[in-house]
């Protein structure tokens, strides 16, 4: 939440917008929030996560659109472009700029070493706790230039290799689909492809990725793409918002792993 002086101001401005409908629809509120978030990003740089930047751009989009002739249309166009460019950058990083993404190294290492994914990798990659510990030990770094004479091989069951392949290409394809859909001209009304790709991305990604805040922001931007008569679609976005909340608060993978191990030992 940034430096101590900024945190209460962000909470106060956001809280006031919730309590007062006039403040909620005033561009001043959103300009103030944009400035506070920008101060937070600059003061904490380079620590803030990418969704804090996106949140600042979104507040700016709200402020600007509220003074437009057709605020809903201006906001929808902003949402489309923001999501499109953010996902385009994510795709460029994965496909062209990172040396360790396309060959599967990123997900191999992440699944094995990031403690937040321990339950998911046991459930989806069929790695036992012992195999996971063994692989983690193998990944202890060697000093600069050192090489083992006879290096032991990691435990690499087919399910884990499949998980690495699916996560590497699945994430890239899903992100590319969102980027292409949202950047495709013309910038008219959002089609069902926009909503399906965004909802699919949020529904799948945030089951595993521990960044619920990013998901909630994307879903909020998705709601701005809905026309007033699209009530069912709005409800779907709200339901997905709660699904992401469920993912972040309930250790579903851990519960499944425990349940499966109890069942197999019974």
């Amino acid at each position: 939440m940034g430096p101590w002086g900024v945190r209460p101001l962000i909470l106060a401005a956001a809280g006031w917008a919730i309590l007062s409908p006039r403040a909620l629809t005033s561009s001043v509120t959103w300009y103030v929030l944009t400035v506070l978030l920008a101060v937070r990003i600059v003061a904490d740089w380079p620590l803030p996560d990418n969704h804090i930047y996106l949140l600042a751009y979104w507040c700016l989009a709200l402020a600007l659109s509220l003074s437009a002739v057709d605020p809903a249309r201006a906001l929808a166009i902003s949402a489309r472009r923001l999501i499109g460019v953010a996902f385009l950058m994510a795709v460029i990083w994965k496909a062209f700029l990172s040396p360790d993404y396309l060959d599967g190294r990123f997900f191999r290492v992440t699944w094995l070493t990031d403690a937040r994914f321990t339950d998911s990798v046991q459930l989806l990659g069929q790695l036992s706790a012992t195999q996971l510990t063994y692989n983690r030990d193998l990944l202890a770094p060697l000093p600069e230039g050192a090489e083992l004479l006879d290096p032991p091989l990691p435990s690499d069951p087919p399910a884990f290799r499949y998980l690495v392949l699916m996560s590497t290409w699945g994430v890239l394809i899903l992100e590319a689909l969102v980027a292409l859909t949202f950047l495709r001209p013309p910038a008219g009304r959002a089609s069902s492809l926009h909503h399906v790709s965004l909802l699919l991305f949020c529904g799948v990604t945030y089951a595993i990725a521990p960044v619920a805040g990013f998901g909630w922001l994307l879903l909020t931007m998705g709601v701005a793409l809905c026309r007033p008569e699209q009530r069912l679609l709005r409800a779907t976005y709200v339901a997905t918002w709660f699904l992401v909340l469920f993912y972040s608060e309930i250790p579903w993978a851990n519960l499944l792993v425990s349940w499966l191990s109890t069942r197999s030992s019974a």
């Binding site: 990418n50 700029l97 990172s98 360790d100 990123f106 290492v109 992440t110 994430v171």
Partner: peptide
């Protein structure tokens, strides 16, 4: 992107949306 290339900024940070693309993060 420029700061990552010339200044060794971690791709995960700086607002370039390079998170979950490389192991060159804070961990």
């Amino acid at each position: 992107v420029v700061l990552v290339r010339v200044g060794d900024l971690s791709p995960w940070k700086g607002g370039g949306f390079g998170m979950f693309a490389t192991n060159d993060g804070g961990s």
